[in-house]
Every structure is written in structure tokens, then in C-alpha cells.
């Protein structure tokens, strides 16, 4: 793997289907993962709704992006986090959030890591750049 460069965080703050923000933020994650940067992704505020299990956009007539979200690890987007309070405020159980990939060896699902706001704030303070969606 290439030498990792500057620390860049993508934040996802918007709900998943009312706008294209989350979908196009995933495209940014996929591309950034191929560049020399130390990439992290944080779902917070309404952005955690994208991690709600069982979403299906067929009835909306929208292609949707749940498959992409479930394949983040395959695209080497591995440092993925969710804000604990945002999940709690929206009634999403921490152990119910979707998987973003599978462990190569065990096949066990990999989930975003749930963090407290203080931990996320400390991560943010260490970034070179934060790109906000």
C-alpha cells in the first residue's frame, strides 16, 4: 500500500435519501482512498441514518447507494466511525448499524466504530482537512 499522507476526514451529516449528499460523499471516499492520504469517515447528526439497517430505495425509484456503503472496506475505506449520541438521539441501536464490509480471513462483518463526541472532536483536531457533506 502507498505511503499514507495527510490526515483527511470526510464527515457525513445529511440524511441518506432526501438529497444526493450522502451518495456523492461515498464517491469522494472511494476516490480519496486511492490517493496518498490518511482517510477517515465520520457519520454524525442525521448522517447516522445512512447506517440504519434494512434500507431499500427500490420503491423510491432510486438506484440508491446501500451496496456502495456495504463495500467501503473493499475500497480501502476502513477508518469509519459513527457518533454515539447521534445514533441514540435517532433511536438506532449501536449493534444494529449496517456492516461496511467483511473481514478477509474470518468473513465476520465489519461495522463502523461508534465513538463519543469527545473522541470524534479529538480526531477532528488532528486532521489536516475536513470535508463536510
Amino acid at each position: 500500500m502507498a505511503q499514507k499522507g495527510k490526515k483527511v476526514m470526510v464527515t457525513v451529516r445529511k440524511p441518506p435519501h432526501g438529497s444526493i449528499y450522502v451518495q456523492e460523499s461515498i464517491e469522494v471516499m472511494f476516490i480519496f482512498a486511492t490517493y496518498e492520504m490518511d482517510l477517515s469517515v465520520v457519520f454524525l447528526d442525521d448522517g447516522v441514518l445512512a447506517l440504519h439497517p434494512g434500507q431499500d430505495t427500490k420503491e423510491l425509484g432510486i438506484k440508491g447507494f446501500m451496496a456502495s456503503l456495504g463495500a467501503l472496506v473493499d475500497w480501502e475505506v476502513t477508518n469509519v466511525y459513527a457518533d454515539r449520541q447521534s445514533l441514540k438521539d435517532r433511536g438506532i441501536a449501536e449493534d444494529a448499524i449496517i456492516a461496511i464490509g467483511k473481514d478477509d480471513d474470518s468473513g465476520a462483518p465489519i461495522h463502523p466504530r461508534v465513538l463519543d463526541a469527545a473522541e470524534i472532536a479529538a480526531m477532528m483536531a488532528a486532521q489536516h482537512s475536513i470535508v463536510s457533506f
Binding site: 499522507g5 495527510k6 464517491e27 469522494v28 476516490i31 490517493y35 496518498e36 492520504m37 489536516h128
Partner: peptide, 9 residues
């Protein structure tokens, strides 16, 4: 989008 990565860098 690579251009955005370059701008950030």
C-alpha cells in the same frame, strides 16, 4: 475528484 484530493493536499 482526484483534483479535489490535490487541492486538499
Amino acid at each position: 475528484l482526484g483534483q479535489l484530493a490535490s487541492m486538499i493536499h
